[in-house]
């Protein structure tokens, strides 16, 4: 057990607007941690900084013993951090198999061409898309798009997975399947940070939660404690009906 990911006094401002203000936390190996907060509280900005979409204005981000605060997105992938996007982004003109192949091709643990075929099938199987391998991504349903995004993230062979509202929009059995899938990823040794609004999923999955409100961290701790923290309840009231 050791720290997989650590944020140390991280801030980000866009022009005059402070999106993330002096946030620190650590995530240990094998944990599933929820990053919560009302809309606009800075959750996605935190994910964007970890995954290298943009750099923190100040503070440091560490992956194991590597300072990744100044690294660019493609280098962070090589280090072992993969993400999904809040607004699903797949390559619409590519088939499902090609989308996964794309993610396998550009990191040292990956594969290209014939060597990749078997791994592509396995990854699509993991997320339940194996029957749609040759379907164009632009023809997929919303749920399948989310699956495809996850398969693509997994193809990057990450040890840390960042999920940005991956369960949003799922309900009933789909949600149960999704939760089971994420849980199975942890047993494979992945460390997961998820931004999520679906309370059922948070309670079912997260060991710990970190709560942001208006760019500031207002609570951190075991999921049950955090969700009953009066400050957290207040920050959610009126802004999000969870």
């Amino acid at each position: 057990m050791g720290n997989m990911l650590g944020l140390c006094h991280v801030s980000k401002s866009f022009g005059g607007l402070v999106a993330v203000d002096n946030v620190s936390f650590t995530i240990e190996e094998g944990e599933i941690v929820g990053l919560l907060g009302p809309n606009g509280s800075g959750k996605t900005t935190v994910l964007n900084m970890i995954s290298g979409s943009f750099r923190p204005t100040s503070g440091e981000i560490w992956y194991k013993a590597t300072n990744i605060s100044r690294m660019r997105a493609h280098d962070i992938v090589q280090v072992g951090i993969a993400r999904t996007f809040q607004l699903v982004r797949v390559l619409g003109a590519f088939t499902c198999a090609q989308n996964v192949a794309a993610a396998l091709a550009f990191h040292p643990g990956g594969a290209f061409g014939r060597a990749a075929v078997e791994r592509i099938e396995r990854l699509l199987d993991t997320v339940g898309l194996v029957l749609k391998a040759d379907a164009l991504a632009s023809d997929l349903t919303y749920i399948d798009l989310k699956r495809l995004e996850l398969a693509r993230a997994l193809a990057l062979d990450p040890s840390v997975l960042l999920l940005d509202e991956w369960l949003a929009g799922l309900s009933g059995t789909e949600l149960d399947d999704g939760i089971a899938l994420i849980r199975s990823l942890r047993t494979q040794g992945l460390t997961i940070l998820l931004v999520e609004h679906v309370m059922r999923a948070i309670r079912a999955l997260c060991d710990r939660c970190i709560v942001l409100s208006s760019a500031v961290k207002i609570a951190e701790g075991a999921t049950g404690d955090v969700l009953s923290d009066p400050r957290v309840v207040t920050s959610y009231l009126g802004s999000h009906d969870a």
Binding site: S51, G52, S53, R72, A73, H74, V77, Q78, A82, R83, F85, R89, V90, L91, G92, A93, F94, A102, A103, A105, F106, H107, G110, R152, A155, L156
Partner: peptide, 10 residues
């Protein structure tokens, strides 16, 4: 097809 995706798959 998508510059952002390209960056995030390495």
């Amino acid at each position: 097809a998508d510059l952002v995706v390209a960056n995030h798959i390495g």
